[in-house]
Design a protein around this nucleic acid. Structure first.
Length: 430
RNA sequence: GGCGCCAUCGUCUAACGGUUAGGACGCAAGAUUCUCAUUCUUGUAAUCGGGGUUCGAUUCCCCGUGGCGCUACCA
């Protein structure tokens, strides 16, 4: 029987959690959970110059937000004794030497071919004659990435190394170290890189690359998860929307793409809107709260407003812009009141007729069904076109070219405010 | 420069040698008695080039081209 699957996500806390890192973490998580294995989080914090604890928090917060819970965590900064012990194993075999205060690993005297057997890419051959001796310990006394990474993967019994393709070229050096330690070599899987629109490596981008940027912009974790999962992997059944537990069930490294994948925001937006629209109103309100804290007004009306725009926002951060006019008097040009197929005269007629019937309407009848009925009746009684009435009433209430329908707005705003706004519109028109 | 990886619509991708090369995003048009959004329908658009292998290549091999990565006492 094979040993239990153990994978690791090994970020260095020199920056906030990057979307590429999140994708790597996700694939590790999916592979581990699919196999009933263990997902290890290992901070590779040996670069004391660039490490910051805020970045550790960014990484753990980001993983938690996405629901990628880890089973163990480790810090390389706390494992100096381990590296010293492993270094001694190599030194006692005469495989190392010191130079300029650093410790180096001697490459094989005779050049040889090192084969990386990659799950995604197949067998990749490298010749050791193209490498330089490997630095194991810096003169500061801390281990290098190449050394600490391999030692930890051995020491933590990592069975599968799933990481970005940018590490493929380092892998033959790592294999040489595994061999020197007479340690079992894990399976490797090098993931395609995430790319900018211009197909350059995404980590070099200047815009939003941190997971937290997207969280703050109002993206949902389930949308981000779905998006990242399908950057380099595809569901065998062609499903576009899969929750995390479904991803776990269906994931396999065999279906991972070899070519780099462009991070296309339009697709993320689409996924986000999809998940946003399907939230219950109560959930939606909770999600929206932090984004609309600055808008004050009647709570019930706020609830109405959010219900009306729920299928219109792609991100939570768009919400305040979409519901602002519910909370404050809209500002717009008078000519916006006139529909393109109408005239100022007809528009005025429509608004005045509407005002008259609304003022006569009992408070108890102030609901969408009744309002729609009454407006329809008025329309035919006055011999008006829909654009002579529905459009200007809607603009009078919202001040926007695009918005929910007039009866929805009337119900949400209530009688007093609606009538006030329609009067304002009539005055604007003359 | 050296070493390595990669190559299907604009983008994410499907098609374990035989399909009218499929889906999704985007875009365009239409329907849903005003707009926007939603929903539905339709349309748009791809196998990088050249050689092989094969009865037959998106698929296998070689060359070219292009993109990317690595080549740090960064990870």
């Amino acid at each position: 029987m094979e040993g239990k699957v153990r994978v690791r996500f090994a970020p260095s806390p020199t920056g906030p959690l990057h979307v590429g890192g999140a994708r790597t973490a996700l694939f590790n998580y999916l592979y581990a959970k699919h196999a009933g294995g263990v997902f290890v989080l290992r901070f590779e914090d040996t670069d004391t110059e660039r490490n910051e604890s805020v970045f550790e928090e960014s990484i753990t917060d980001g993983l938690k937000w996405l629901g990628l819970n880890w089973d163990e965590d480790h810090y390389q900064s706390k494992r100096a004794d381990v590296y010293r012990r492993y270094l001694e194993k190599l030194t006692s075999q005469g495989l190392t030497y010191e130079q300029d205060g650093g410790v180096y690993f001697k490459l094989p005297a005779e050049p040889r071919v090192v084969v990386v057997d990659d799950i995604i890419r197949g067998k990749v051959e490298f010749n050791s004659k193209n490498f330089d001796d490997i630095v194991l310990m810096k003169k500061t006394g801390t281990p290098t990435f190449n050394f600490a990474n391999v030692v930890d993967d051995i020491d933590m019994s990592i069975t599968h190394v799933i990481r970005g393709e940018d590490h493929l070229s380092n892998t033959p050096k790592h294999i040489l170290l595994y061999e020197a330690f007479a340690a079992p070599i894990p399976r490797f899987a090098h993931l395609p890189l995430l790319l900018n629109l211009d197909r350059s490596k995404m980590s070099k981008r200047t815009g939003d690359t941190a997971v937290d940027d997207y969280r703050r912009a109002g993206y949902l974790p389930e949308a981000m998860l779905n998006f990242l999962a399908q950057l380099g992997w595809s569901d065998p059944d062609g499903q576009d929307f899969l929750p995390l537990d479904e991803l776990v069930k269906k994931f396999s490294l065999e279906r991972v793409q070899k070519a780099g994948a462009v991070f296309d925001l339009q697709r993320l937006n689409h996924l986000n809107q999809h998940y946003l629209m399907r939230k219950s109103l109560d959930e939606y309100i909770e999600l929206a709260k932090p984004f609309i804290a600055h808008l004050s007004g009647d709570e019930l009306m706020g609830r109405f407003a959010l219900a009306l725009i729920q299928d219109r926002a792609q991100t939570l951060s768009e919400i305040p812009g979409l519901i602002e006019y519910f909370f404050k008097t809209p500002d717009y040009e008078a000519n916006l009141l006139v529909f393109k197929k109408s005239s100022p005269e007809q528009t005025g007629k429509g608004l005045n007729a509407t005002l008259t019937v609304l003022e006569a309407l009992e408070d108890t009848d102030w609901n969408q069904v009744k309002l729609q009925q009454i407006l329809d009746e008025t329309l035919s009684a006055e011999g008006l076109q829909p654009g002579d009435m529905f459009w200007p009433v809607r603009v009078a209430l919202s001040g926007e070219e695009g918005s929910p329908s007039p009866v929805e707005l009337l119900e949400a705003l209530g009688k007093t405010e609606s009538i006030s706004r329609i009067k304002t519109a009539i005055n604007k028109l003359v």
